[in-house]
Computed example of a mutant assay.
Amino acid sequence: MTTEPSAYHQRVARQKRKAILEAATRLFLDSGYARTSLAKVAEAAEVSKATLFKQFPTKAALFDAIVTASWRTGEEDVVRPSAGDPGTGLALIGRRYVALLTSPGMADLFRIVIAEMPRFPELAEAQFNQGKMPYFDSVRRYLEAECAAGTIAVDDLDLAATQFLGMISNYVFWPRMLLPHWAPDEASMERVVDEAVRMMRAGYGTG
């Protein structure tokens, strides 16, 4: 006799989790972190309190899950670029980064963290340690692989990863924190990625 949940129950559990994360994000943004209770999240997500507490026993655990989901959406299903062609690999990473930064919930998540940081610094720590750093490390590992392949020469991998991601986010994302209607078109964002790749190859390429 198996104790594994059926495919149906697994699907229902995923749907409820998605509803909880979406409801919590809306409430955190509209009401603030302090004024949002798990009971309110359960009501907004149309799930029982027992269902919510089973998955997220604390509000901090719920916020951590929102951060993780926002930074890793779809990343587990994509093919990582192979070392050997930094132009192609960096372009692929750059375009995925644009898609991530322009996803519907990413700007909202940062606004929650910025608004609540004076009272709840742990939210910023969660955003940094569970969201940004794992993504940053994946880019760093790619650059490290290209160094091993001899296609680029980088003395400071952390700096190089910061430079590449910064060239993209400083145009695509950060202006949205002050200008809510900032929405560069696809061609502009493509050009930003292409220029970031060109500068990385010019600065670190060996060929």
Rank of each mutant, 00 (worst) to 15 (best):
E46V: 05
V79A: 15
F128D: 04
G131I: 03
R35P: 01
A145S: 13
Y97H: 10
Y33P: 08
V79R: 13
L92E: 07
S188G: 08
A24D: 10
F28C: 09
V98W: 04
Q130M: 11
G207P: 11
A145Y: 00
L29K: 10
G94T: 08
Y204Q: 01
Y204D: 02
D77E: 13
S6T: 15
D156W: 00
W71N: 09
S188W: 01
D156F: 00
Y171N: 01
K49W: 01
F63D: 08
D77G: 08
Q15V: 13
D156Y: 00
A202P: 02
Y33S: 04
V41R: 00
Y33K: 09
E75L: 15
A60W: 06
F28P: 13
A13W: 12
V193I: 07
R140N: 05
L157V: 11
S169V: 07
I152M: 11
G94S: 07
D64E: 12
T68G: 01
G105I: 05
T51P: 04
I168F: 08
R111K: 15
E195V: 14
W71P: 03
V67G: 03
T151V: 08
R141K: 07
V197N: 03
D194Q: 14
T2E: 03
P86L: 06
F128C: 04
N129K: 11
T102A: 03
P175I: 11
E195Q: 10
A153M: 01
D108C: 00
A99V: 03
A115T: 05
T3G: 15
A126E: 06
I152T: 02
R119P: 00
R17K: 13
E76I: 09
A69G: 09
A153P: 03
G84S: 08
M133K: 11
D155W: 05
K59Q: 10
P180N: 05
V79L: 12
V47L: 09
K16R: 09
E122K: 06
K54I: 01
D185Y: 02
A99R: 07
R191Q: 10
R11A: 12
A124N: 09
T73K: 13
G89H: 00
I20K: 04
Q130N: 12
T151Y: 01
S82Y: 04
G84Q: 00
D158I: 08
A34F: 09
A45R: 05
F120L: 08
T51I: 06
N129I: 02
F128L: 11
R72K: 02
E22Q: 10
M1R: 09
P5S: 14
A91Y: 00
H9F: 14
P180W: 15
P57T: 06
L101S: 05
M177P: 12
G89K: 07
A161S: 06
A19V: 05
A19C: 06
A187H: 04
P104S: 02
F173Q: 00
G203S: 10
T36E: 10
E122D: 14
G150T: 07
I93H: 02
L178C: 01
S6G: 15
A126S: 15
R176C: 06
D137A: 09
D185S: 07
F63C: 07
Y33F: 13
N129P: 02
L52A: 15
A39D: 05
E122W: 11
A153K: 00
V12H: 03
